[in-house]
Design a protein around this nucleic acid. Structure first.
Lengths: 305, 305
DNA sequence: AGGAACGATAGTGATTAACTATACAACGCG
DNA sequence: CGCGTTGTATAGTTAATCACTATCGTTCCT
């Protein structure tokens, strides 16, 4: 029993004439004739009474035809689903973002994605890189925004932008007089750091070897966020390092804080998109990338690769 | 897209492993692999993300699988319908009976059929032979009970029983003294006849050539029934001819009426079943025939052909 | 009886679906 | 870093199926 057979069946039920039904199906009369006979043999029931005068459908035949119509209808729905789902910009996209990007990127990203792909709602999760990677591999997420380096089997990445680091200090801090800060001086001040698991914490420690070896005055704030740390800096609890997208927007707005760049070579992080190699909706990823690059993230330099 | 393809599809969705899914479908892994690929090409969507680690279904794939399950479910219903409809003794049987048989046969027939085929309800219509024949050919009836001769293209008949005619007269009638009545004497008395269209009327006239040529005293009672005529005979309005099944049951019960057989050669009618040559439920017809022969119709002789 | 209409059957060719064998890719382990 | 393992894709072959043309057999009507 094939779907074609069922199509022949309902055509014959409608036309009540093998020749006409065959024509309507664009096949020859013997083809339809044989198919119906095959169906009858397979089901072991007589579906039609054939006579020279006309073709009559049996009771059981009528019931089976009605069911066949239902099957064909449902089968047609499959094609419709496929057509509807063919657009990579249709259907929800599960996006993951690390904590140190989300609050600064998402407010810009979301309206841009919505404008570019109105029928692609975003399901967003913020988390640590490791958690995002896990979800991505499991299929709970489709695309994630993370900082490089990021290497996972089965996952491809595409760098999107570089983002320089800034030093954030309380207004009136001794370093305020300097135009740029040297990285090694970070060990000289009480440096406030995110908790373990935040990749940004490691990247900051990378910048300052003395800090990494634990020789500085740094303090780790577990369960904290960049925003919390900023507030703490404002109260004079210490200094910190922020990515430019988090640091640059506010000096105008907050008189309690001062932002300074690093001396060259300016430390930075490289932000990338990552997805499963097998993920088929590359169009959706392009939209995300464009929306990120279209977002006004201060200090950020697009990576054109 | 075939039903087989859909079966492969849902198997793969369940197993998330080409090899296992193939095994479950009793095909080789390449077979299933190719089939899925073909489906994806045809629908122009990616249904699964394949990777070494595991097989993930896409969003659109999951929706299509759900729909495919629906299709397969409905398709399975076809087989169930066929199985249920395979028994010729299941499902209603549309039975037609001529007016001059129905009242005498049906009370016996119905319980017998119900006993022999409990799941075959009878949809019964009484009518003239011509109307029954028309309905039978149209398919509005499946089997009819008529008197022979009955010849129609596409219709086969099977004689069931012969039924002798009787003369019915009021008690105290002059012929009451005779053991048997000669056919030609029917022209001598006021013979009450059914209206045109009743085959029995013609058969009675056939018995008595003088009556047929209109030389007797017969009166036609349009729109009447044998029962009505019998009441009229009881009032002395005339005599009539009845088939034995209508005449014989009652002499004991009705002191106003006398029944006499004809002299040899006894006139009779032959009752037959008729159905379309193409009608597939021959088992149902057998049941009807047996039920008729099992009915206590007085004077009736089975036709064993 | 002859012919027209119609479905069934026979025979053939092309497509498709299945198999086995093998290639290829990704990952994990020593 | 290479090698084995696991898992899917591809190649090539064979068998089954499908659809065609041609023709037959019935039935019914004139």
């Amino acid at each position: 029993m094939t779907l074609t057979d069922l199509r022949y069946l309902v055509a014959l039920a409608r036309e009540r004439h093998f020749g006409h039904a065959a024509e309507r199906c664009n096949v020859s009369q013997p083809t339809l004739s044989v198919a119906i006979k095959k169906l009858e043999d397979e089901l072991a029931v007589t579906l039609f009474e054939r006579s020279a005068a006309d073709v009559k459908i049996t009771d059981i035949g009528a019931r089976i035809v009605a069911q066949a119509e239902k099957v064909l209808l449902e089968a047609g729905q499959i094609k419709e689903l496929a057509t509807a789902g063919r657009d990579p910009l249709s259907g929800p996209l599960k996006l993951g973002v690390i904590y140190t990007i989300g609050p600064y990127l998402l407010p810009h990203l979301i309206p841009r994605v919505h404008a570019a792909a109105p029928s692609m709602p975003l399901l967003i999760q913020e988390n640590y890189t490791a958690r995002l990677a896990e979800s991505l591999k499991r299929g709970d997420l489709d695309v994630i925004v993370v900082a490089l380096p990021f290497e996972e089997p089965g996952i491809v990445t595409q760098a999107v932008y570089d983002e320089p680091f800034r030093v954030l200090m309380p207004a009136g801090h001794a370093w305020e007089k300097d135009e740029a800060i040297s990285a090694k001086r970070l060990a000289e001040a009480p440096l406030l750091l995110l908790g373990a698991g935040n990749c940004f914490r490691d990247q900051v420690l990378e910048v300052c070897p003395l800090c990494r070896s634990g020789e500085g005055l740094q303090r780790t704030l577990e369960g904290s966020s960049l925003e919390t740390i900023r507030h703490m800096v404002a109260t004079g609890a210490g200094i910190t390092v922020l990515p430019s997208s988090a640091a640059d927007p506010l000096p105008d707005g907050n008189p309690l804080l001062t932002v300074r760049p690093f001396e060259a070579p300016e430390p930075f992080r490289r932000i990338a998109l990552a997805w499963r190699v097998t993920y088929p909706r590359s169009g959706a990823i392009d939209v995300i990338r464009s929306a990120i690059l279209g977002s006004p993230l201060p200090g950020v330099r697009p990576v054109t690769r």
